[in-house]
């Protein structure tokens, strides 16, 4: 049995021997070579579009996956490509933000593309910023306009990137309930500039698993083991 998470940007697989693989979503078949559909538990936006024995939502997968690393986690914040999910494990509730790209990975990609850099560079640029540019807009499109204004005024790319991360963090922090043990997952969490901004805005340290983007694939696998 494998856990297969086919999201809007990347596809991730968790294998029983403890290995993970990540490919672009359109290449998800590479992850299931030689594996029968009856041995796949899928999750992610395309969970029902890929062969599977069982399909579960990312919310349930996240709950099962995060528990592997942090058994006493209280809240999970999953910052995905198209949405941000906040799951409160204490009372079994969740919130999703997907009406607007401003608090999602899509916003980071949008920004990187405008600046002519890779998304993977955003974290390092943030760390080199001297003074984060002030961006007030909560709308992703308006935030780009503000970034242009700040650069016209003389702000560096580093300062603008840091300002964008703080803007992003303020939006996500509003969704997070008061808790001590908050786990951050999703590919976006690899951006250390963003996590630093989020910790500063929220005023607390977050728990980050070693491979945050594969937690949901692992959760799908664990779900199948617990509920065969």
């Amino acid at each position: 049995m494998i856990g297969l998470d086919v999201g809007s940007t990347t596809a991730k697989a968790a294998y029983p021997e403890g290995k993970f693989r990540i490919v672009e979503s359109r290449n998800w078949r590479e992850l299931t070579d030689g594996i029968a559909p009856c041995d796949i538990v899928s999750t992610g936006y395309f969970r029902k579009s890929v062969p599977h024995k069982l399909a579960i939502t990312e919310i349930t997968a996240a709950a099962f996956g995060a528990r592997e690393y942090f058994p006493d986690a209280e809240v999970i914040v999953d910052i995905g490509g198209q949405d941000t999910k906040v799951i409160d494990l204490r009372n079994n509730t969740f919130l999703l933000n997907d009406k607007c790209s401003a608090g999602t990975g899509a916003f980071l990609e949008f920004t990187a593309k405008y600046l002519g850099i890779q998304v993977s560079e955003l974290g390092d640029l943030h760390m080199r910023a001297k003074k984060a540019a002030q961006l007030n807009s909560t709308c992703g499109v308006f935030a780009i306009s503000e970034m242009i204004s700040r650069m016209v005024e003389g702000a560096s790319v580093e300062d603008v990137v840091a300002g964008m991360h703080y803007s992003f963090a303020r939006r996500v922090a509003k969704l997070i309930p008061e808790a001590d043990r908050i786990v951050l997952i999703g590919g976006t969490v690899k951006n250390r500039g963003l996590t630093a901004a989020l910790e500063e805005v929220a005023g607390k340290r977050f728990l980050i698993p070693p491979a945050p983007q594969t937690v949901n694939a692992l959760g799908a696998l664990r779900y199948s083991e617990e509920r065969p």
């Binding site: 936006y45 579960i56 939502t57 990312e58 919310i59 349930t60 709950a63 949405d83 079994n92 509730t93 969740f94 999703l96 997907d98 009406k99």
Partner: peptide
């Protein structure tokens, strides 16, 4: 939250499915 009329969109279906799974947990 809904906006325009029509069939239930996928993002709302995801929430309903996740809520059902959550009630099961």
């Amino acid at each position: 939250q809904g906006d325009m009329p029509g069939s239930t969109p996928e993002q709302v279906k995801l929430r309903l499915e996740a809520f059902s799974e959550m009630l099961g947990r």
